[in-house]
C-alpha cells in the first residue's frame, strides 16, 4: 500500500531523512519509533505530500505522491503532530468542511455520524460544540475524526497520544487497533509501550536513518536476551558481590543503591536467555542473606536504541554506560612565539 524508496530530505546541510526505504502492506499497523527529531514527522510529511523529498520516491497505492498528488492524497487521512483544527468552528462545521475539502462522495450525514461514533465525539457533534471549548483529548479525537473522513485506505497518525491522560491514551490505542482492522495505519511515537500495544511492525528511525524494520515481537525478543534484575539483599556488601560475581551466569553485578536497614540494592545482569532468579535465590539462601526485593527491569526505548545503534555501528558498547569523551583542549601558544 505504501512504498517508500531511498527517501532523502535535506534541510540546508542537515539530513532530516537519510535514505529510508520500506514498504507497508494493506491492513498493517506500523509504528514509527524514534526519539524527538529523528525524522519521523518529516517522513510522514513527505508521504502525505505536505513536503517534497530531496531524493527518492513515495508511492501510495501505486501512485507517486509527487507525480499525481491529487489522486495519492485521496487515499490518505493524516493527523499531523498538532491537530489541524479551526478553533472557531463547531465539530459539525469542521467535519463538514473536511468532507467538502476531500471531495467525498459518500452519504454525508451517515458517514460523519459514523465517524463521530467511532471516535466517541457524537455528543459534541450533535450539540454543536465549538472546537476551542473541547479538552485536549477531545480535540485529538476530532483530529482523528478528520483523518477518517472519506474513509481513506491509509491513515497516518503523528504522535496521536501525546498530552493525553492515561485513560484517553488507552482509549485512543484501542481505537487505533480497531482502525487497523479495516485500514493501513502508520503511527509515530517515541513511547515503546505504545507500539507494543498497538502495532504489528516497528520501524525504528534514528537521526534520519532507518535502523530497524522488524515485527514487534522480534524487537522485544531481541532485548529480552539480556536480563537485568534489581535485587535488594541484606548482608555484607563485599561478600555478596563476590558471591554474585562467582556465579557463572551473571555477567555483571554492582551495588547501586544506598544502605537501607542493613540492605543494599544490586544491579545484576545475566547472559542472554538465562533466567537466574532461582539460582540467585538458592545462593542467597545458602549464605543466609535474605532477599527482600527483586524486580526485573523491563526493556525500554533507550535500551533498544543503544542496542540497535550499536549493532548498526558494530562497536560493542555496554548500555547505560556514560560515554567517554576524549577531548583535547587546544594548547595555548607561547606569547613569545607570537612576538
Amino acid at each position: 500500500m505504501i512504498e517508500v524508496k531511498n527517501l532523502v530530505k535535506r534541510f540546508g546541510s542537515k539530513y532530516a531523512v537519510d535514505d529510508i526505504t520500506f514498504s507497508i502492506g494493506k491492513g498493517e499497523i506500523v509504528g514509527f519509533l524514534g526519539p524527538n527529531g529523528a525524522g519521523k514527522s518529516t517522513t510522514m510529511n513527505i508521504i502525505t505530500g505536505y513536503m517534497s523529498s530531496t531524493l527518492g520516491t513515495a508511492e501510495i497505492g501505486g501512485i507517486n505522491i509527487l507525480e499525481d498528488p491529487m489522486e495519492a492524497k485521496k487515499l490518505i487521512g493524516y493527523l499531523p503532530e498538532q491537530p489541524p483544527l479551526y478553533l472557531d468552528m463547531t465539530v459539525r462545521e469542521y467535519l463538514n468542511f473536511v468532507y467538502d475539502l476531500k471531495g467525498c462522495r459518500l452519504n454525508r450525514k451517515k458517514h460523519l455520524e459514523e465517524i463521530c461514533r467511532v471516535v466517541k465525539i457524537i455528543d459534541d457533534y450533535n450539540k454543536n460544540r465549538l472546537i476551542k471549548n473541547l479538552s485536549k483529548g477531545y480535540k485529538q479525537r476530532v483530529g482523528i475524526a478528520q483523518a477518517l473522513v472519506g474513509n481513506p485506505a491509509v491513515i497516518i497518525l503523528d504522535e496521536p497520544t501525546v498530552g493525553l491522560d492515561p485513560k484517553e491514551i488507552i482509549e485512543i490505542r484501542s481505537l487505533i487497533r480497531t482502525l487497523g482492522e479495516t485500514h493501513t495505519v502508520i503511527l509515530s511515537t517515541h513511547i515503546l509501550t505504545e507500539v507494543q500495544a498497538v502495532c504489528d511492525r516497528i520501524l525504528i528511525i534514528n537521526s534520519g536513518k532507518l535502523i530497524a524494520d522488524e515485527k514487534t515481537e522480534s524487537i522485544i525478543n531481541m532485548l529480552e536476551g539480556s536480563r537485568r534484575l534489581n535485587a535488594r539483599i541484606c548482608g555484607p556488601q563485599r561478600d555478596i558481590l563476590r558471591e554474585l560475581r562467582a556465579l557463572p551466569e551473571i555477567t555483571r553485578a554492582e551495588a547501586v543503591g544506598e544502605r537501607e536497614n542493613d540492605s543494599f540494592l544490586y544491579a545484576i545482569e545475566s547472559s542472554s536467555g538465562v533466567d537466574i532468579r532461582k539460582t540467585l535465590f538458592f545462593m542467597l539462601a545458602k549464605n543466609n542473606w535474605p532477599l527482600i526485593g527483586l524486580e526485573s527491569q523491563g526493556t525500554n526505548l533507550e535500551d533498544i536504541f543503544i542496542s540497535l545503534v550499536d549493532k548498526k555501528e558494530q562497536t560493542p558498547k555496554k548500555s547505560r554506560e556514560v560515554p567517554q569523551f576524549d577531548i583535547k583542549l587546544p594548547e595555548f601558544e607561547n606569547k613569545e612565539d607570537n612576538n
Binding site: Y78, P80, P84
Partner: peptide, 12 residues
Amino acid sequence: ARTEQLLLTSPI
C-alpha cells in the same frame, strides 16, 4: 495554527 497542513495534504 498549523491548519495549513490539512489544506496541503487534502486533494485540492
